[in-house]
């Protein structure tokens, strides 16, 4: 990626709707994420925040509206005034630039930490083995696991597994990172080590969208905070403003429960 930081937003959602059967999960989401911005999305479970995150890399398909990453529509190609569905291979190519970290880590259990990290750069990007292994080792060191490359996921703690998962996503050198409740499956004393890695990542200017329940992290690290409820964005603003001076009753009710 030698292109200079584009002037447009990294992620732009316009009137995004999605249904699961007859249930409308997303009811017209409008959001913009600037390059290098860290956006935290909070809200009660079932509010559609994870679904929205999964739409950004087309793990879920949107049914109405427009959703683009770095100026490129996700999952569709626009020619003239017509939309064409992308082939699987084209969707896969779009995903190369978008890293994702899951609530339940989803490391590949039959591979060591190192193999987990190098798999996609080798297979999906076709990079050379030496280059990838060196980068993977540096990333392992960066997340504090330089000596655990040969461990299988089952031999690592939850916090260590999630840090490997972050390294795995970073090894693709993405321009956008999506975090889907990255600390929700962790024991309380392991949450900090994962948040530290994410904080470092924010400091070096990675564009991040973080669905989380960690209000402290959102306040300290986030550039913007979005409160979602019932498939809509209820409130959006700087974390400090939203957390200390919420405008809507629904936001107030939610924050009074979690803070």
């Amino acid at each position: 990626m030698t292109t200079p930081t584009p002037p447009g937003p990294m992620v732009k959602a316009e009137q995004v709707h999605k249904w699961f059967g007859r249930f409308e999960v997303l009811k017209g989401i409008n959001l913009e994420v600037a390059p290098r911005e860290v956006m935290c999305i909070v809200g009660p479970s079932g509010s559609g925040k994870s679904t929205f995150l999964r739409c950004i890399n087309h793990l879920e398909r949107i049914h109405s509206g427009r959703l683009s990453v770095d100026g490129e529509l996700v999952g569709y190609r626009e020619r003239g005034d017509k939309l064409y569905e992308m082939r699987d291979s084209e969707v896969a190519r779009q995903r190369l630039d978008i890293g994702m970290v899951f609530q339940r880590f989803n490391l590949f259990p039959h591979m060591t930490a190192m193999q987990n990290i190098v798999e996609a750069p080798l297979r999906a990007k076709g990079e050379s083995k030496d280059v990838v292994r060196e980068r993977a080792q540096k990333l392992l060191e960066r997340v504090g696991l330089g000596d655990r490359g040969d461990s299988y996921p089952s031999q690592l703690s939850g916090g260590q597994q999630q840090r490997v998962a972050i390294a795995r996503a970073l090894c693709m050198e993405p321009k956008l990172m999506l975090f889907d409740e990255p600390t929700s499956a962790l024991d309380p004393e392991l949450v900090g080590e994962v948040l530290d890695v994410m904080r470092q990542l924010a400091e070096v200017g990675m564009t991040m969208i973080v669905v989380t329940h960690e209000m402290g992290f959102a306040r300290e690290v986030g550039d913007s905070l979005v409160f979602m409820d019932d498939g809509v964005v209820v409130e959006e603003g700087s974390p400090r403003d939203v957390l200390s001076n919420p405008q809507h009753n629904r936001t107030k009710a939610f924050l009074s429960k979690v803070l």
């Binding site: 699987d88 896969a92 339940r104 259990p109 996609a120 297979r123 693709m172």
Partner: peptide, 24 residues
Amino acid sequence: GQSEASSALGMSRMQTLRRIVLPQ
């Protein structure tokens, strides 16, 4: 979650099947 993680990394359906799903 395994095939989801694999496709989120940009691996194709065949790669996901051969490298991630079938070995497990």
